[in-house]
Design a protein around this nucleic acid. Structure first.
Lengths: 292, 292
DNA sequence: CTGAAGCTGTAAGAAAACTTTCAAAACGTC
DNA sequence: GACGTTTTGAAAGTTTTCTTACAGCTTCAG
């Protein structure tokens, strides 16, 4: 839509009336500051009246200036992007028949970008260093997040020794809390299933075990109990929350650990995957695509 | 000043009251979307009341949420607010130090777009119709894909009766293959762990059970054995494949089924989530964000 | 268990943002 | 320059956003 918007603005800048040209020009030159503007502030800056701004927005195809801003939010717009054509096409086709799908896609992309942005934070570097060095790592997740924890633990096991998925069925967290030596805990948690995760985090903290939390944006206890908190987007214009992006983040984390571990790790990956092959019959080498 | 805000938020995130922690956390994790928010939209997202947002802003030293936004504009002038600009910035900054990260993000976005494209296919509509109508649904996944299967089955159980995760520990697939009545099978599979999945698909096909396969782009047996095949991207310039996007696809599928089921389903979701609450202590209603 | 302090939400009211109406100004056409 | 059309702004109205007042709830010390 921003793509759309930009082109329309350019059009008005050429062929519009006096006020329209002025507005279009100003908006084009300060697109990135638009979210902070209001119809009144724009009117003042450009030197037109407030109703004119409103009319202009309607001429652009929006309902109001508010609506224009709204549609700018999370809109990846006219970026010269790798898949731009496909994205454009999708959005165009979906906009009429399934607008909520198009909106969901935008939110999802924004979520992924946010994940990758976190991978460049200092926090991230700390966790990676820890997961690459500490002798024992525990991974936990409850309810639907158990799947993420399991996936994460599995993958990490390919890279290094001493990774263990925390088992709730014992009814306690003895393995995490009573162990000896340096440890670290990685916790997957989402809003609706906080109880166990929180208890575990509290206990781990009390034991001096560093805790890394991967959660949604609504966790209110994470920062006070955990060493690092990474929040992923969970609302994609769907009927309820999805924690799928935790998988993306976890995966990216694994990848960083792989890089941090350096040389020797590839050998371990090969051996681990051989073992899997022997006992459960998988096919191929997970590193095969690197052998180019 | 923006760092000021950031630090204050971090402080509240740790030591604030319940509402303050929640607000601070949410605001920190979506700082770049803040200009698009309003006190009301924030309140809705975080699950607090509107006055609480106002009070919190005053505690942060601003006069109102409007005022906070206002000063954001001046203070972090060149922080990218539009997702397009954030992408730009990410690519630019990552290009020198972590080029593979930037490339990974591009691939990941392309993957998500591809997932959403599939949601508009005729195949998709067929699966959705089936999952909304058939009395019994079996979900299976092996190795790392078991997590996805479990997540999918859990979510689907919120919506309807008769969903069952296939258990491999029995050593056979009797529940799927010997049952009576109309059934459907949803299978999560990835390249390296194909054996079980393929056997199961073959057997199901022989029994006339329709099979929906969610897999990577390297599955060569899917189309000949399954009624529908959805392939997700799995290579994101990382040291090996990630099946995280299966979570996105599965989730989108669930959402379509939700829509297809129509009216009555919301009541079931509420009741299911009550049960979860009673037995495992989750917090809140997964549909709460729909209560507008 | 009790009471006080602090936190939070509801409901109603104030302020801001936006729209509508209408008349004046600008523009183009003859 | 006169006339009709289009564009624009002032003023008043509507909706949205934020604040205030107050009461219920939670928490925590005694």
């Amino acid at each position: 839509m921003a793509d759309d918007l930009r082109e329309k603005l350019l059009g008005f800048q050429k062929d519009g009336s006096r006020a329209e040209r002025a507005l279009a020009g100003y908006m084009l030159s300060s697109l990135s500051r638009l979210p902070f503007e209001t119809a009144a502030s724009l009117a003042l800056s450009v030197g037109v009246s407030e109703p004119t701004v409103g009319r202009f927005c309607r001429a652009l195809g929006y309902h109001s200036f508010r609506h224009l801003k709204e549609s700018l939010r999370d809109d990846i717009g006219d970026h010269p992007w790798l898949i731009r054509d496909r994205l454009d096409e999708f959005r165009q086709k979906a906009r009429e028949s399934e607008p909520q799908l198009s909106r969901g896609l935008e939110l999802e992309i924004a979520g992924i970008v946010a994940v990758y942005e976190q991978a460049r934070s200092p926090q991230w570097a700390e966790v990676v260093a820890r997961l690459a060095s500490v002798p024992r790592i525990f991974v936990a997740g409850f309810q639907t997040e158990r799947g993420h924890a399991q996936y994460f633990a599995n993958q990490l096991t390919y890279l290094r020794d001493g990774v263990q998925l925390v088992d709730l069925s014992a009814g306690n967290f003895a393995e995490v809390l009573l162990g000896e030596g340096e440890r670290a805990l990685v916790l997957f948690e989402a809003r609706h299933y906080a109880r166990h995760a929180r208890l575990l985090a509290e206990a781990a903290r009390a034991q001096g075990v560093p805790v890394t939390l991967i959660t949604d944006r609504y966790c209110d206890w994470g920062p006070s109990l955990c060493n690092e908190v990474f929040a992923v987007a969970t609302q994609f214009n769907q009927f309820w929350d999805s924690t799928a992006h935790m998988g993306c983040l976890g995966n990216l984390l694994i990848n960083s650990v792989f890089t941090a571990l350096g040389e020797g790790v590839e050998e371990r990956v090969r051996r681990t995957s051989e073992l899997y092959g022997r006992f459960t019959g998988h096919v191929g080498n997970p590193l095969s695509h690197l052998a180019k």
